[in-house]
Write a protein that binds this DNA or RNA. Structure first.
Lengths: 118, 118
DNA sequence: CCGTTCCTTCGACGTCCGTCGTAATATGGC
DNA sequence: GCCATATTACGACGGACGTCGAAGGAACGG
């Protein structure tokens, strides 16, 4: 409250120390969010929110980005009218060694190996 | 149906090939189930269902054991009247390299580092 | 047999989370 | 200023999951 009329469109990316294991695991347990992770990993660079291919509405996508950011899986920052998303690759390793890396790998395999006809 | 009156009390531990990433991540996203994992890892050997220290009723605990077994995180087998639970340490590594190992480590840290009064 | 112990099955209930549409805000270009 | 674009905030809804208690089956020991 007492916020000025103009919100300068800043994003606060939380510090790794504030993230719980519960938060991280819940974040990656959703298929839409894992799709975000996979697309970011495959792209190799940041992507704006609108460029993702997701099977949900814009507002739902915003929700998922928030969850991922608060779990320190991605970091976000504004760039003009768009919002860029990038993976936070090694930050979380101090707190949960190897975990995010393994999750990202599995997310990529999950999407690239989709052509698995039995 | 057409089941004999006496159920021989067998358990079918699914094969790793049938487990999805979704299943595994959902399984470990629950705090009670992570407690099971941590207690098993700390014990270093199998534990019967009744010896776990869990904040839920017996029937709920049974449910959680089922979820963990179907995700190939634990394997179960009867031993007299009790049901033994053991971690399936390296099975899942073929399918999700490094993932379960990292999760187990984080579960152990989560419970052993509980004495974190700030 | 009979009782005890251990675990499971079955409904039922409550809550949380993913989903949406609509309305609103910020930026950039004209 | 004004419009178009990009994203967010706000309620609302529905389904899924964690939870429980009560009843039941299985093994072991008398």
């Amino acid at each position: 409250m007492a916020r000025p009329k103009t919100t300068p469109r800043t994003v606060d990316n939380p510090s790794v120390a504030e993230v719980t294991l519960q938060q991280l695991l819940e974040a990656v347990a959703d298929p839409v969010r894992r799709s975000v992770i996979a697309q970011l990993a495959l792209a190799g660079h940041g992507l704006s929110c609108g460029t993702f291919d997701l099977p949900v509405s814009r507002s739902t996508a915003t929700h998922h980005f928030n969850v991922l950011r608060e779990a320190c899986v991605i970091s976000q920052h504004y760039q003009g009218t768009t919002k860029m998303n990038t993976l936070r690759p090694d930050d979380l390793d101090a707190r949960f060694p190897g975990l995010l890396r393994a999750v990202i790998d599995s997310c990529v395999r999950e999407t690239t190996q989709v052509p698995e006809a039995h």
